[in-house]
């Protein structure tokens, strides 16, 4: 009861908050900061040769000029307007950070130059080197998707098997305890030697990094499933396979997702290391290549792409979890 009352109160507070007119100056201020960034970038003289300075400044000006009418329209934009209002402090902070970055690098050269390129140098990478960067991202995604799918699938099946069959548990448990905690990267030299291609070796390593946490957590989820549910299902005529698929597996799903999240984090690490050491493509390889050429702007660009890729994949997994575990309450919002 108290839960629903709290929910009602929270909804009322949110509604009251929504009705308070937020002054449009927040979005307008953010737009102004972006315009200031553009002006500053164009006005101040530079201490080096950066071909994309004008493009960078124009981009900032477009964002700033776009924010001004959006800020004036304000509440008439509905959900988009509300989101813009919510994120406008962040937009302003981002522009201020870019101003500071611009000033300490391109304008006054306060940071050692090749290691700390200005934002327009990174923009230059995205504009000029996008075929290579995009190809590397695609290769990384393909490698990651293959390895992750194999590892997650195998880990899930093995976890369910260990959790439901004594015989499988007897043989698999000691192996899992002995080999599982070994970091997947430790297999790297052996994998590159045993597998015919570095690509298949890397897939194996990503699968290994994913498979261990998924196996252990699926197993613990199945083993820890409330016995009361099995009693209920049995009295309603459930067969042994039905008990596994329709009772044990759904009951274990929250644990399975913890394993999938852990596996995804581990697979990122293995992916980058494998690409740095053996695979001749992918974002890890791109990082290594950029370092070799002292192309630090390319490195930062690759890091930004990698952050976007990992964050998007985690978000995707959260969405999947929210869909499959809608019956659970108190889920962490990502």
């Amino acid at each position: 009861m108290s839960g629903s009352i709290t929910a009602v109160t929270a909804a009322r507070v949110a509604a009251a908050r929504a009705h308070v007119p937020v002054p449009p100056w927040r979005v307008l201020a953010a737009g102004t900061v972006w315009l200031a960034l553009a002006g500053l970038t164009l006005a101040l003289p530079e201490t080096g040769d950066f071909p994309r300075t004008a493009a960078f400044a124009h981009g900032a000006a477009v964002i700033g000029l776009g924010l001004l009418p959006l800020g004036l329209l304000g509440a008439r934009l509905g959900g988009f307007g509300a989101r813009l209002q919510h994120w406008s402090p962040w937009l302003a902070a981002l522009a201020i950070a870019l101003v500071a970055w611009e000033v300490v690098t391109a304008k006054f050269c306060l940071l050692p130059m090749p290691f700390f390129p200005p934002p327009q140098a990174i923009l230059e990478v995205f504009l000029d080197d996008w075929p290579r960067l995009g190809g590397s991202t695609l290769n990384s995604l393909i490698l990651l998707a293959g390895g992750y799918a194999i590892g997650a699938g195998f880990g899930f099946v093995l976890g369910v098997a260990i959790g439901t069959s004594k015989a499988v548990g007897y043989w698999a448990h000691p192996v899992l305890r002995f080999v599982g905690p070994l970091p997947a990267t430790a297999w790297l030299p052996l994998a590159f030697f045993v597998f015919p291609t570095s690509w298949s070796a890397s897939t194996f390593l990503v699968a290994l990094a994913t498979g261990f946490p998924v196996t252990v957590l699926t197993w613990s989820g199945v083993a820890g499933a409330n016995k009361a549910y099995f009693d209920v299902a049995r009295t309603l005529g459930a067969s042994p396979s039905f008990l596994v698929l329709r009772v044990a597996v759904p009951a274990a799903l929250p644990h399975v997702f913890v394993g999938l999240f852990m596996g995804l984090g581990g697979s990122f690490a293995v992916l980058v290391v494998a690409e740095m050491l053996g695979v001749k493509s992918g974002l890890g390889w791109y990082l290594q290549w950029a370092q070799g050429w002292a192309a630090y702007a390319n490195m930062y660009a690759a890091l930004i792409v990698m952050a976007l890729m990992c964050s998007s994949l985690i978000t995707l997994l959260f969405r999947l979890r929210d869909r499959l575990l809608a019956w659970q309450k108190g889920l962490v919002q990502w």
Binding site: D231, V232, R234, T235, L236, A251, Q328
Partner: peptide, 21 residues
């Protein structure tokens, strides 16, 4: 000897399966 379709049970707790509506 094992649960039978002709015998239904209601337990002390409802024991609804939380993942089914």
């Amino acid at each position: 000897r094992e649960p039978h379709p002709d015998v239904g049970v209601v337990f002390q707790e409802a024991r609804l399966l939380p993942w089914l509506d």
